[in-house]
Structure formats: structure tokens, C-alpha cells
């Protein structure tokens, strides 16, 4: 379980590097990370970030119900992905 969580974080981190076009962010995402405050994800990046998350984890986000606070904690985001992932359900 713990190893799987680490993989989620690692994959999210890779997506973050791509969306921000900033390789120096590699290895920076921890469970406590706030994507908005710690990595400067702004409203333009969010769409890209979320659509890439969908593709990477094979989920479909209901944006009109997705809580912004899920982006203020990597732990919360992982929990959201896990709860919406077909393989985890």
C-alpha cells in the first residue's frame, strides 16, 4: 500500500514537471505538498494538470463537483485519484 502511494506521488510529480515545464521540480512532491502554493500552479496550469491526471490514472473528473481543496494537499489528491480509479474501486 505504501509503495503504491509513493508511485502515485512520483507519477504526479512527473506530470507536474511536464505541466510547469520545470525539470527542477522532480522529487519535490510530498504528501504535504500544496500544488497551488508550493509549485505555483495557477488557473491556466490547472486545466492541463487535471486533464493529464485523468489520462495518466484513467479517471474522469467531474469538474463541476471537484473540490479545489484537493489541490492543496498531495495526500488528498492521491486519495481522490484512488477513490475514482477503476482499478482501485
Amino acid at each position: 500500500m505504501e509503495a503504491q502511494k509513493v508511485n502515485y506521488l512520483s507519477e504526479i510529480n512527473e506530470l507536474l514537471c511536464n505541466v510547469k515545464n520545470d525539470p527542477s521540480l522532480a522529487g519535490q512532491v510530498t504528501e504535504q505538498s500544496n500544488f497551488i502554493e508550493d509549485f505555483g500552479i495557477d488557473s491556466l496550469d490547472i486545466v492541463d494538470f487535471m486533464l493529464e491526471l485523468e489520462s495518466q490514472f484513467d479517471i474522469e473528473v467531474d469538474f463541476d463537483a471537484f473540490d479545489f481543496d484537493n489541490l492543496t494537499s498531495a495526500k488528498r489528491l492521491v486519495e481522490y485519484i484512488r477513490s475514482h480509479s477503476a482499478t482501485e474501486a
Binding site: S43, I46, V47, M50, L51, V61, F63, D64, A65, F66, D67, F68, D69, N70, L71
Partner: peptide, 9 residues
């Protein structure tokens, strides 16, 4: 609206 999380301030 474009995809955007709820509650963004």
C-alpha cells in the same frame, strides 16, 4: 465553463 475546480479563489 472550461474545466476548473470548484472553489478556486
Amino acid at each position: 465553463s472550461l474545466p476548473s475546480p470548484m472553489g478556486a479563489k
